[in-house]
């Protein structure tokens, strides 16, 4: 696979990167692009607090992983950061700041500008996020036109560049295809292309590779790491697969019943877990996954 040559997150018609732009970029490296502090989420229907205080900070080019059982609040935390909590649910404490802006102050218009442009997401089932009766290329081009203000023709060109950048073999062909004509792995690439079309600084990947073949998952993870390295994209990776988090993330949060039971550098948390629940997750993984065999192989290889 060849690395994409163009910078993904700068559309061809974007602002020129002068000295002032570079200085701004340097400042941005230090400042977190996503900062979640003591976030609490309550279900108003049952008047029950579901997420009890989640905190983490994400700087450009970094990746944070969230692991935990079903219903532990991983996805709700992500949805709060995207401003798309389900009905009845609301942020009842703490704060989320995206590129320095507190999201509680945002108007719907400001949210629209922020989503896609600054923070974006891909979820587990790619087929359900595309319109089945519109060719996939047109759907990406639409995102580009709306989000970057490019005209039709350059938007099409940028959409093609994006399809190439996510390593789709024949971007021209895929551009003109309908969602049903593409495999799950290809659809997830299309979704990632659409998610990064407007050059977001944060991408939330919520179980984005869970349903894919392992060989395809490896390629999607390569793609995400390219986006980090080349464009400084920051990632939030939600997965029930500890191995995916171990591979991709700098730090990891372990959630259980709405609570963060452990938070730290990935290597430390997964190799020397302190909390009982993290230890259980690691043990289960080692006992029933590939680690059972491959970990022993690795220790044999080590002197």
């Amino acid at each position: 696979m060849t690395a994409p040559s163009q910078n993904l997150t700068t559309p061809s018609g974007g602002p020129p990167a002068g000295p002032a732009g570079e200085a701004a970029a340097r400042d941005a490296v230090a400042a977190p692009v996503l900062s979640v502090a003591g976030l609490r989420i309550t279900d108003r229907a049952g008047d029950r607090e579901i997420v009890h205080g989640v905190s983490f900070e994400l700087t450009p080019g970094k990746a944070v992983g969230i692991v935990g059982e079903s219903g532990s609040g991983k996805t709700l935390t992500c949805r709060a950061a995207l401003g798309i909590l389900p009905p009845h649910f609301e942020v009842s404490g703490g704060s989320v700041r995206i590129a320095g802006t507190d999201i509680s102050t945002l108007t719907p218009q400001q949210w629209t500008a922020l989503r896609g442009g600054t923070i974006s997401a891909v979820f587990q089932d790619p087929a359900s996020y595309l319109n089945p009766s519109i060719r996939v290329g047109a759907q990406i081009a639409e995102v580009v036109r709306v989000k970057t203000g490019l005209k039709r023709r350059p938007a099409r060109q940028h959409a093609l560049d994006l399809l190439r950048a996510v390593h789709l073999r024949d971007p021209q062909l895929v551009y003109g295809q309908y969602p049903y004509e593409l495999s799950g792995g290809m659809l997830q690439r299309v979704l990632i292309a659409a998610a990064v079309a407007a050059g977001p600084r944060v991408l939330i990947a919520d179980e984005a590779t869970t349903a894919l073949d392992v060989t395809v998952q490896a390629e999607i993870l390569d793609l995400l790491s390219d986006l980090r390295d080349q464009d400084g994209l920051a990632l939030v990776v939600v997965s029930h697969d500890l191995a995916v988090v171990a591979q991709v993330c700098d730090e990891v949060l372990v959630m259980r019943q709405g609570e963060v039971v452990e938070h730290g550098p990935t290597g430390r948390v997964l190799h020397q877990p302190r909390h009982e629940y993290t230890r259980l997750l690691v043990t289960e993984h080692e006992q029933y996954g590939l680690d059972r065999f491959r970990a022993s192989r690795e220790s044999k290889e080590r002197p």
Binding site: M1, V214, T215, Q217, A218, E219, L221, D222, L242, A243, V244, A246, Q247, L270, H271, V282, H285, E286, G289, L290, D291, R294, A295, E298
Partner: peptide, 23 residues
């Protein structure tokens, strides 16, 4: 390819050139 694509807690997937060669 299948085995070398799978990450574990202790090992990353094989280098992408290796996987590309298998593919």
């Amino acid at each position: 390819l299948l085995v070398s694509s799978a990450p574990t807690l202790h090992t990353a997937p094989a280098d992408r050139s290796e996987r590309a060669a298998l593919r």
